[in-house]
């Protein structure tokens, strides 16, 4: 988080709204995300947090509003005015998306090494030895032993699959990673290990992250800042420990008091 005061925002979100017919998905969301910042979007099921995440990651066009992203060349571009080719290139190089269900983010029928190497090959790397070397290095960083490099993710446990998915996303050194309940559905001990690893990678690589979670403990451990959503609206936002230690809105107080311990 150093030098953050000298930097300009990476992502600027203005009035993002998404309707499903008459129903509100998310409404009038504004925020800015700075380089190296981890933002948690919390709220219960149906609060609009996943809708918002999908709008931000260009997987779902908003009904209204604008989302601007600072490209690697420093220019600020409206995501929904990018050509499809530019957007897809962005998604597989400068961005990552970690799905709750690893099978949605991995190619289950090709080896772990190929899963990690795919993005490299997609940007034109054509040297098998180097691709494999990079894949080996990344598997090591996500604590998957190198002798599993030629195994399919189908043979991996849930925690390993999730770690593989993370390696696959980070191999091109993205600047922004979206995460949708990355620890959902994992055992508590597996969760702890994954969270710890994510925390380390995020700070080592200076990643900006937008993470959707209903688990306030995850938000506490990983995020710098929290947005609380309810009925499609952002009702409270601020520094993570401020929102969790001194919640202001009735709903946030309810959320915080409903958990065992954070």
């Amino acid at each position: 988080m150093s030098d953050q005061n000298n930097q300009e925002p990476l992502l600027q979100v203005h009035g993002v709204t998404r309707y499903y017919g008459d129903r509100i998905g998310c409404h009038d969301v504004d925020f800015q995300l700075w380089p190296g910042e981890v933002l948690a979007i919390v709220g219960e099921s149906g609060s609009g947090k996943t809708t918002l995440l999908n709008c931000l990651s260009t997987r779902l066009a908003p009904t209204a509003g604008a989302i601007e992203y600072r490209m690697r060349d420093g220019s600020m571009r409206n995501l929904y005015e990018l050509s499809e080719a530019e957007r897809r290139l962005l998604m597989r190089t400068d961005w990552g998306f970690v799905h709750q269900n690893a099978a949605d983010g991995l190619r289950m029928t090709v080896s772990a090494g190929a899963n990690v190497g795919e993005r490299l090959m997609a940007v034109g790397q054509r040297h098998y030895g180097k691709i494999r070397e990079t894949a080996t290095d990344w598997l090591d960083r996500v604590e998957i032993t190198v002798d599993r490099i030629d195994d399919d993710p189908r043979a991996f446990s849930g925690g390993m699959r999730q770690r593989l998915q993370i390696a696959r996303n980070l191999v091109t050194h993205p600047r922004l990673v979206f995460m949708d309940e990355p620890t959902g559905g994992l055992d508590v001990s597996v969760q702890a290990r994954l969270l710890d690893m994510l925390r380390r990678l995020v700070s080592e690589l200076g990643l900006s992250v937008i993470i959707v979670t209903h688990d306030l403990a995850v938000a506490r451990l990983l995020s710098h800042r929290i947005m609380v959503m309810r009925h499609g609206e952002v009702i409270e936002t601020g520094l993570t420990d401020q929102v969790l230690d001194d919640p202001r809105e009735p709903y946030t107080q309810l959320l915080v008091s409903s958990i065992l311990q954070v």
Partner: peptide, 11 residues
Amino acid sequence: EYGLMHVKLYE
């Protein structure tokens, strides 16, 4: 976007 073709050869 032909990276996938090389994934097959990598495998």
